[in-house]
Amino acid sequence: MKINLKINNINRDIDVEPGEVLYDVLRRCGFTSIKKACGTSSCGVCTVLLDGMPVPSCSYLAVKADGHNITTIEGIKEEADRIGKFMVEEGAVQCGFCSPGFLLTVIAMEREIENPDSQGIKNYLAGNLCRCSGYEGQLRAVKKYMGVSE
């Protein structure tokens, strides 16, 4: 069946299978920044923004996204650069497999909560697993980026 997705502000009509998940559809369309680490919506690595909200694309049916806006890293280069600078500076990236999903979640958080404190940041990012960094560098980067002290 056909669905319409507005991916990074560009409308596309896409043929999908009824059971197909967003992850597979988006990768098929060339958005390979999206990675998959669990496939069971428990790691946050495959995060994309659906109308601005983070969703695990590995477990989100493509048909459900019909008519919605999807954002991937490819679509937010500027914001990614801005946050990315802090991630580089604070050593938030090691193997990098979690980085795109993490970054998108940070962007969603920034839009969603005003002036989060450091606990609020931790809570929001708790669904994004990282096996390399112990989260320290990531949290330092986000706090610096958002101007959160302590």
Binding site: G84, M87, V93, G96
Partner: peptide, 11 residues
């Protein structure tokens, strides 16, 4: 700066 990091962030 790590050289490998920008590409990882950019996906």
């Amino acid at each position: 700066r790590r050289e490998d990091v920008p590409d990882k962030i950019a996906g």
